[in-house]
């Protein structure tokens, strides 16, 4: 079967199918009533809720911590204060990245060429990795929140070994993940283990698409 026969086969089949494909006029009228989505309108309720909780957490946390720094720094438990500051700071950065993604995705022009649009969309989706990296970076502070000055005087060697072991392990894991969760490691087993599950499918798919985009672009650059 040659090229022309294949094209003819495709075209005659589609011509037949298209004849039976009717666009309901009512449907197009309905669509023509659709207004440009608002960002919030296009988000799933659970994401709106998560965003709301995140803003609330950072807002209230920021106000409370600022008040401690300004009014009662000397009396405050420094372990708690510094741990909470790191946690709220990292959450604020994650929130900023998340909001930036939402706004940028919303502004992408779908009428642009396929390679450009898909590259932008995939890169944006992959920037979700930054949020994950920052969330992992918070891990160690969850082990130091409850530390206090009495530990220095009251604790025995065994308690110290246990506590430091957990905290140091979390620091090592968090820093390692922070530097290693990146697009280049997408084919590693540990990476796929972390990002397995339905909610990560679009992210993994974006990585595959970016590879395809690069194949097209690489060739483009070399010609």
């Amino acid at each position: 079967m040659d090229e022309l026969e294949i094209k003819k086969l495709w075209q005659t089949t589609n011509d037949k199918l298209e004849k039976s494909f009717v666009i309901d006029k009512k449907n197009t009228e309905e669509i023509a009533r659709v207004k440009i989505y608002s960002i919030l309108g296009s988000m799933k309720p659970i994401k709106v809720f998560a965003l709301f909780v995140g803003i609330l957490w950072v807002g209230i946390g920021g106000i409370a911590l600022s008040s401690i720094y300004l009014n009662s720094f000397n009396d405050a438990n420094k372990f708690f204060l510094f741990s909470a500051s790191i946690q709220v700071g990292l959450t604020a950065i994650s929130l900023y990245i998340y909001l930036y993604q939402l706004i940028t995705i919303y502004q992408i022009d779908i009428t642009e060429p396929i390679i450009r649009t898909q590259e932008k969309l995939s890169n944006l989706k992959i920037s979700t990795l930054w949020v994950t990296r920052l969330l992992f970076l918070q891990l160690p502070v969850w082990t130091t929140f409850w530390w206090n000055e009495t530990m220095l005087t009251d604790w025995g060697i065994l308690q110290w070994i246990m506590t430091l072991f957990f905290t140091l392990s979390f620091i090592v894991i968090a820093i390692w993940l922070f530097f290693n969760i990146k697009y280049e490691n997408r084919n590693k087993k540990w990476f796929q283990l972390i990002f397995s599950g339905k909610e990560w499918t679009p992210l993994m798919k974006s990585m595959e698409l970016l590879e395809q985009v690069e194949e097209y672009k690489d060739h483009n650059a070399s010609t």
């Binding site: 060429p113 396929i114 390679i115």
Partner: peptide, 8 residues
């Protein structure tokens, strides 16, 4: 449509 060169 794709946004690549004709030779590509």
């Amino acid at each position: 449509i794709l946004g690549i060169s004709v030779s590509n």
